[in-house]
Design a protein around this nucleic acid. Structure first.
Length: 219
DNA sequence: ATCCGGATCGCCT
DNA sequence: GGCGATCCGGATG
């Protein structure tokens, strides 16, 4: 009568392998869609936090007017122009960090912005870092919020996503009919390009403006 | 539920 | 000098 686990929950706690650079060295739209379900992990002296990626946006490079790559190679964008599979963390609105994974070959200037994660590990730490979050979903349902909750900061930019402090691991894949595609949030240029990907009905996805065009992903 | 303004600052024009 | 790949709190329907 030992209290062995009654439910098959072991599967849930097994960690996937970090995604290889070859995963990222593909068309950015595809990487953005396939990053749904992968696990973002951040390790700091305070502890480890993890979350399943449920919302992403593709930024295509210097031909995409909403992408930071249009500014060219500057101090701010140097990591964006780095090799596939590294982080690009940038500072925005004088207050917040946003996390991207760099895609395509070095020098392309394309990346995937992670806009929301569904927390799986380190929830007490996330709550401590986000005292303003009233509801559970407010912890990580936005690009700035998830960086606050997970402790992602600018010093973590430009580094491989296969080793700490920032990693992305393989996770449970998301079926095609669960993926919704809409325009990107909060931009003024190329505002109608359908490059935002989200998991249908996940409570941690950020709000979609009512007037946005919305369709299901088709491969 | 949706809209609006304020906070705050590095970066490019 | 002005503008963001944002968040939050308060006002309004």
């Amino acid at each position: 009568m030992t209290k062995r686990d009654a439910a098959p929950s072991a599967r849930r706690s097994r960690l996937g392998a970090p995604l290889a650079p070859s995963f990222y060295d593909r068309p950015t739209e595809l990487v953005a869609r396939e990053l749904l379900g992968a696990v973002l992990e951040c390790t700091t002296p305070e502890g480890v936090t993890r979350g399943r990626i449920v919302e992403t946006e593709a930024y295509l490079g210097d031909h995409d007017d909403a992408c930071h790559a249009v500014a060219g190679l500057t101090r701010r964008t140097k990591d964006l122009f780095g090799p596939p599979g590294i982080s690009y963390v940038y500072f925005i609105y004088g207050m917040y960090w946003c996390f991207n994974a760099v895609t395509r070959e070095r020098g392309h200037g394309s990346a995937v912005l992670v806009r929301a994660v569904h927390p799986t590990d380190g929830l007490p730490l996330m709550h401590a870092r986000r005292p303003k979050a009233k509801r559970e979903r407010d912890l990580t349902n936005g690009p700035g919020k998830l960086c606050l909750a997970m402790g992602i900061v600018g010093e973590m930019s430009g580094r491989s996503l296969r080793t700490p402090p920032l990693m992305i691991r393989a996770g449970e894949p998301v079926a095609d009919d669960q993926v919704i595609v809409t325009p990107r949030i909060g931009i003024t240029r190329a505002a109608d390009w359908p490059l935002r990907y989200l998991v249908r009905d996940d409570p941690f996805v950020s709000a979609t403006p009512k007037h946005f065009q919305q369709r299901t992903w088709s491969p």
